[in-house]
Write a protein that binds this DNA or RNA. Structure first.
Length: 294
DNA sequence: GCCCAGGTGAAGC
DNA sequence: GCTTCACATGGG
């Protein structure tokens, strides 16, 4: 039957795949000579970016590719998004430095669990923890010939059956009881993740913060990366640094004031703007000392 | 050794 | 209300 295949090409423009997959939204993508391998739901997939195109390869034939186009948000017009950003020097610099940076739309549970594990961890370490968790508790998925085994992200019910000691053995330290308690609340039906998508942003945030280990920052990450609430604006140490250095240099401004600033200054796609600031600060910091931009 | 990492929750003012 | 601290683990 035509249309059921293991490869497909997509045309795209203004999409920095490498930057997007490594920008601290998702933690499961592996690079191997210009190609990216990952698992989306139960689909193992390998992505080959080309000029103005993207070729995707799966292990087994798939009848449709909506799971992929949705995850990568291929239908989003990036110009339309960046046009809503405030026209100020920091945003212009951040956008110029990260052409084609995108937001993914991830599974809300994987996103929630991953970010519970993210607190005061570097992205490399989050990746290690998540990899261990998937190897030990995730269902194996079919991979292309000669590829290392791959696993789905473990479902809440599976993690709910684990012990705290078992989770700590995945190197997640003090985050283990948070992840376990949250998995149990979801597996038991006490908390309904699907319902979040139907709520106003602020209500959904308040609800998510009822989960153990979830404060405002992690709730905002899940709202933005897992549900697509475009106004959610996660403020981590890097974004805080960006706000202070780029918008309030040399001034003592309270966290609360900065939060209020983020709620009004960045427009309807504030979360998207936030990702540019985050990526800008991180990539700028990893460069050899450069003269500060006025 | 030291400081820091996509923080949170509890305890102390 | 706001500030301080403990919490595991590993990178630079």
């Amino acid at each position: 039957m035509t249309g059921v295949d293991t490869t497909k090409s997509f045309t795209l423009r203004d999409y920095d795949l490498a930057g997007t997959l490594t920008s601290g939204q998702a933690f499961r993508w592996e690079a191997c000579n210009q190609r990216w391998t990952g698992v989306i739901g139960t689909h193992w997939v390998r992505l080959h970016p080309g000029p103005g195109s993207l070729t995707a390869e799966t292990a087994v034939p798939v009848p449709d590719w909506n799971w992929l186009t949705h995850y990568l948000q291929l239908d989003v017009d990036l110009d339309e998004v960046t046009r809503t950003f405030p026209d100020d020097e920091p945003m212009r610099a951040a956008v110029a430095a990260s052409r084609g940076l995108r937001l993914l739309r991830q599974d809300s549970w994987e996103c929630l669990a991953s970010f519970i594990l993210s607190s005061t961890k570097q992205i490399v370490q989050i990746r290690q923890i998540v990899a261990l968790l998937c190897e030990r508790y995730g269902e194996p998925v079919a991979v292309a010939p000669a590829c290392p085994p791959a696993f789905a992200f473990p479902c809440p019910a599976r993690l709910a059956r684990a012990t705290e000691a078992e989770l700590r053995a995945c190197k997640m330290g003090f985050r283990a009881p948070y992840l376990l308690a949250t998995a149990r609340m979801i597996a038991s039906g006490q908390f309904d993740l699907a319902r979040m998508a139907t709520l106003p942003t602020e209500t959904a945030r308040t609800e998510l913060m009822q989960l153990p280990g979830v404060g405002q920052k992690i709730a905002d990450c899940v709202l933005l990366f897992g549900y697509g609430f475009q106004s959610a604006f996660p403020v981590d140490v890097w974004v805080m640094k960006a706000l202070r250095q780029l918008y309030f240099p040399g001034r003592r401004v309270s966290r609360q004031r900065l939060h209020r600033f983020t709620a009004t200054h960045f427009g309807p796609s504030a979360g998207y703007a936030q990702q540019y600031l985050f990526h800008y600060m991180r990539t700028k910091a990893s460069q050899p000392a450069k003269r500060a931009v006025a």
